[in-house]
């Protein structure tokens, strides 16, 4: 039977059926898989926070290996001793603080409202770590990460990730040779919470100078690098009132 596919009625019916079929497939899939996907995302957050604290399965100098997903929850409750939410002057404990969406909180802060800022206090080998989540914009899309500080405001480790930076260029912010450079840098310039700049041509490619508030930039990724600098600065700006209360030097 030949169908006249040029008729308007047919076109409309076809389009409607197609929309319903495709819509149902996608909706079915999204609801069916959302449990697993959410769980994966939750594990990922825990892995990232632990990574910034230096708890990972890295074996050599080039790899980024997280704590495996099957034990990450145990490790997370073992090392993260306290999760707090900073809301203005109030500080409350909350065991699900790590699920807070930083993007929404930053949007609130920009509107002039008081954001709920999560902060994770971890302990490893008798040392205290303050892990702060960050969120910002790269070249194409969102970038985010975690920065672990000690009470002297020295960076103990960072983790960065991105949604869609250019592979081989900006996407390399989640590579070891970029992230490892931050470790040991001070975020303070005197008494100012200066953050850390991703700097081009700072004549310090090996990053020997830990007091200059600078790390060496990635070639070909200027805008992503600037995004990282801005993200750190913006985050510290929000958290500095709290950081003042824990700073010991």
């Amino acid at each position: 039977m030949a169908i006249n596919t040029d008729k308007n009625v047919y076109t409309v019916v076809f389009a409607s059926v197609m929309v319903i079929v495709v819509g149902s497939i996608l909706a079915f899939l999204a609801t069916g898989l959302s449990g697993r996907i959410n769980e994966n995302m939750r594990f990922e957050k825990q892995q990232n926070i632990l990574y910034a604290m230096g708890i990972n399965d890295n074996v050599d100098e080039g790899s980024v290996n997280f704590v495996p997903t099957d034990i990450v929850e145990d490790k997370f409750s073992q090392y993260i001793t306290e999760q707090i939410i900073i809301k203005g002057d109030q500080i409350v404990d909350n065991d699900e603080a790590y699920l807070i969406d930083m993007k929404k909180q930053l949007a609130l802060a920009k509107k002039g409202e008081t954001p709920e800022l999560p902060l994770f206090i971890g302990e490893k080998d008798g040392k205290k770590f303050y892990v702060i989540p960050m969120y910002g914009k790269g070249l194409w899309d969102d970038i985010w990460g975690y920065i672990a500080l000690d009470d002297k405001m020295i960076v103990q480790g960072v983790f960065f990730d991105h949604k869609g930076e250019t592979p081989g260029l900006g996407a390399n912010i989640n590579q070891r040779y970029f992230m490892d450079d931050f470790t040991g840098e001070s975020i303070m310039a005197g008494t100012r919470y200066a953050g850390i700049n991703v700097a081009k041509g700072n004549n310090d490619p090996l990053n020997n100078d830990k007091e200059d508030n600078e790390v060496d930039a990635l070639a070909g990724a200027t805008i992503t690098g600037n995004g990282v600098s801005a993200m750190i600065k913006e985050t510290l700006n929000l958290y500095k009132d709290y950081l003042k209360t824990i700073r010991t030097n």
Partner: peptide
């Protein structure tokens, strides 16, 4: 054989 040619790109 069933795709309407008018909206085939979509």
């Amino acid at each position: 054989n069933i795709i309407p040619s008018k909206i085939r790109i979509i």
